[in-house]
């Protein structure tokens, strides 16, 4: 059984600054004595959605997504791990996730700068969209991890049950 919080350290290639672009890490103190299995049971409906596979092993939940639905609350993430970590007296839930959507948005300003450079007639709209995507990246990089953290907190506190809010696609 893993008793050491290893999120954000050695699971993948460690690029502490650069990988912040597409990698989301965070943690949430657990003020409940419930075992890890109970914590993950409260979060399970987040992962029981179309396009998502996951497995729980001891204190870790690992998931993978392929083409998640629009209303999937974790649609920007492709894979990741959530760990129940023991730190001194307390415990916390820590996560480490990869987001190709953040990476895509990060690249878009450079792409449209390139378009502006190549196509003189599209210069003005290209610069406008460069600015829009740069702004959207900053908004997404700050907002999405906060929304995810708030969602976890609500679910662990038992304030949310199941429903993802999406229509029933088969």
């Amino acid at each position: 059984m893993s008793s050491v919080c290893h999120c954000g350290s050695t699971l993948r290639v460690n690029l502490p600054l650069i990988d912040t672009i597409w990698r989301v890490r965070g943690s949430l103190p657990l003020d409940t004595a419930a075992p890890a299995s109970e914590i993950f049971a409260r979060l399970e409906s987040l992962f029981e959605v179309a396009g998502t596979s996951y497995e729980i092993e001891n204190d870790a939940l690992t998931f993978r997504k392929k083409d998640p639905l629009s209303q999937d609350k974790m649609s920007i993430y492709k894979s990741g791990t959530l760990n129940v970590c023991h730190q001194g007296e307390g415990r916390s839930l820590a996560w480490d996730m990869q987001s190709p959507a953040l990476m895509f948005c990060f690249c878009l300003p450079f792409f449209f700068l390139g378009v502006a450079w190549l196509l003189d007639e599209s210069r003005t709209p290209s610069f406008v969209f460069t600015g829009i995507f740069a702004f959207l990246y900053v908004v997404g990089r700050i907002l999405e991890p906060r929304l995810f953290r708030a969602e976890l907190r609500r679910r662990i506190a038992g304030e949310v049950n199941g429903d993802m809010g999406a229509p029933a696609h088969s």
Binding site: S70, S75, F104, L136, G140, G165
Partner: peptide, 8 residues
């Protein structure tokens, strides 16, 4: 509802 990813 509009999400960040949908908007991008």
């Amino acid at each position: 509802r509009l999400t960040w990813k949908e908007l991008v």
